[in-house]
Amino acid sequence: MFVQRPQQSVIDEWQRYHEKQASVCNHPVLQRFYQTPLPAADTPLSRVSFVALDFETTGLDPRRNEIVSIGMVPFTLQGILPAEGYYQVVKPTRTLTEESIAFHRITHSQVDQAPPLEKVLNELVDQLRGRMVVVHYREIERPFLDLACRQLWRERCLFPLVDTMAIEARWERRGWKQRLKQLFGGQPASIRLNDSRQRYGLPVYSSHHAKVDAMATAELFSAQVARHYDPTTPIGQLWD
């Protein structure tokens, strides 16, 4: 009961927000996005269409940093289809710093030839429509996308998503054993994407790339469902 009551309010809040947005949004892409209803909160996971989403950005703060590339991989619990995904390099308005180039391996020339975000935002939002977004760490993709919509279209774009990092934290960092361990100075388990994947026997991917990370996130979520939930679990329970 303790866990379920706040989750029910999260669900109600998201459904109200989605319905409200459908009537107030002016941009046609956002209108389409919100007029496509959210899946009912009691839809079993096995019947939900997901899309794993990953942005590479120049930093963690949406106000000061920008999106450099976008990767997306659609999936269901039955299977992940990497080839049907979406990948786009984006040209930021400010020049890339050397550190971020080293991190993303996206070079100046790749970025120079890429379109600016305003040219790809339509397609990006359209690709997410009707699908449950899955990310690893909710503080990147949703805030960056929301800010982009605010700046370019003067409208909000928020939606419920599933955060595999939050799921990982829930299962790896709760319980008296974990607390006891931390009390005695034990390090909490790492819930970064690759460390989390290792706990499920998932392979290590060599590249740092938005679409590879999206695929990796989709795999991690499939593994989390197999271990901690089951295909009949209602999707609303995982909304963030």
């Binding site: 999936f75 039955q78 299977g79 992940i80 289809l81 990497p82 080839a83 499920y200 026997g201 998932l202 695929m215 989709a218 795999e219 499939s222 593994a223 197999a226 271990r227």
Partner: peptide, 13 residues
Amino acid sequence: AAAVEIAYFKAGT
């Protein structure tokens, strides 16, 4: 490679 679909199975299933 481009046609592959990925699926995950927990030990014991």
